[in-house]
Amino acid sequence: MTAHSPKWHFEQIGDEGQSFVWLHGWGQDSASMLRLAELFKAEGQHRIYDQPGFGRTGRLQDGAGTEDYADALALELAQVGPGPHILIGHSFGGRVSVQMAARHPTLVKAIILIGGAGLQRRRSLAFRLRAFVLKTLGRLARLSDKLFSTSFRDAYVERFGSADYKNAGPLRLTFVKVVNENLVQEAKAVRCPVLLIYGADDTEAPPEIGKKYEQLMPIARFTEVKGFNHWDILTRGAYQCQALIKSFLKDLRDD
Rank of each mutant, 00 (worst) to 15 (best):
S5K: 08
P6S: 00
G14S: 06
E16G: 11
V21I: 15
W22T: 01
S30R: 11
E38K: 14
F40D: 03
R47V: 04
Y49D: 00
P52R: 07
G53A: 06
R56M: 04
L60I: 00
Q61N: 04
G63Q: 12
A64P: 06
G65K: 13
D68H: 12
A72E: 03
A74S: 13
L77T: 07
G81F: 10
P82A: 15
P82N: 14
P82Y: 06
G83C: 04
P84L: 05
H90Y: 10
V96K: 07
S97N: 09
V98Q: 07
Q99C: 13
A102T: 10
H104T: 01
T106M: 07
K109T: 02
K109Q: 14
R122T: 12
L125T: 13
R128N: 08
T136C: 01
A141E: 00
R142S: 05
L143N: 00
D145Y: 08
T150Q: 02
S151Q: 14
D154R: 15
D154G: 15
Y156M: 06
G161C: 09
S162F: 10
D164E: 14
Y165G: 02
T174H: 03
V179S: 12
V179I: 15
N180R: 15
N182K: 13
L183Q: 14
A187N: 09
A189P: 06
V190H: 11
V190G: 12
P193Q: 14
P193E: 14
L195T: 08
I197A: 09
I197F: 01
A200Y: 01
D201A: 13
P207C: 03
Y213G: 07
E214N: 14
M217V: 15
A220L: 09
E224R: 13
Y239N: 13
C241T: 08
C241H: 01
Q242T: 07
A243C: 03
I245A: 06
K250D: 12
R253E: 15
D254C: 01
